[in-house]
């Protein structure tokens, strides 16, 4: 049986994709770049960072390309001035939300937020920054959880749940007070469910979860979820 193929137009370029593809996948496969942050191949798309929003013709709402499946004759714009402005604003809000002081951060040089800021030219923040301080969880013998640098992308939660299968990490509270927690908000060292696999530190886009004594550039493995899920499917 031949596979059905859909035709769509992204930024004026005609491309073909599988009907099960998301807009993001179709774009990547065809060399069109859409910025992402919470998205990580191999994990369930989260749709939270809103960086990958695109305009779909005929739809008044902006759609997250990581979650929206393609359909035939879809017309998509990924880089309108409005979208670029929104992306800049989102990066700016993230930089201002918690304490992102790159010069003293373990992720300096391998941080996705830092990279995005440079890429989009977010060279300062217009909104005031928050100075709420969160206590670090350094109880685990190998890992550190630093809420001050967390952007709540939930990659760690998803990798812990979907790949490692233990769901040690989750979120407590809501809105701006949201925080990553270990088990039922216990010190990491007291966790029964954690297998100390370290996948959370491998996928953290910023310096919120890291391995003690090692720069993030040594421990980061962004391709890990994709690698594991692909092998599991076989």
């Amino acid at each position: 049986m031949s596979e059905r193929i859909v035709k769509l137009i992204i930024d004026g370029k005609e491309i073909f994709a599988k009907p099960t593809d998301t807009i993001l996948k179709a774009a990547i496969d065809n060399g069109i770049q859409i910025p992402t942050l919470c998205y990580l191949e191999g994990l369930t798309p989260h749709g939270g960072c809103r960086l990958c929003v695109v305009e779909v013709k005929g739809n008044p709402k902006l759609m997250t390309s990581c979650t929206t499946p393609v359909s035939n004759n879809m017309e998509i714009i990924t880089n309108s001035p409005k979208l670029i402005k929104y992306r800049k604003q989102i990066i700016e809000l993230l930089l201002a939300e918690r304490i992102h002081t790159c010069s003293v951060c373990i992720a300096n040089g391998s941080c996705e937020l830092q990279e995005l800021a440079s890429k989009f030219g977010v060279d300062h923040t217009n909104v005031s920054r928050n100075w709420e301080r969160f206590e670090l969880d350094m109880s685990h013998e190998r890992f550190v959880l630093d809420h001050n640098r967390c952007i709540l992308c939930t990659r760690c939660i998803r990798v812990c749940d979907e790949i490692e299968g233990v769901h040690t990490l989750d979120i407590k509270r809501r809105g701006k007070d949201s925080m990553i927690i270990v088990d039922l908000d216990e010190p990491w060292s007291a966790s029964y469910s954690c297998t100390s696999c370290g996948k959370c530190s491998a996928v953290c886009p910023v310096g919120a979860i890291y391995v003690k004594g090692k720069p993030l550039s040594e421990t980061k493995r962004k391709e890990l979820p994709k690698f594991i899920t692909e092998r599991r499917r076989r």
């Binding site: 790159c102 010069s103 951060c105 300096n108 830092q114 440079s118 890429k119 989009f120 030219g121």
Partner: peptide
Amino acid sequence: PSIEEKFKYG
């Protein structure tokens, strides 16, 4: 000047 992609925090 346009410093997009030329600068880096930290």
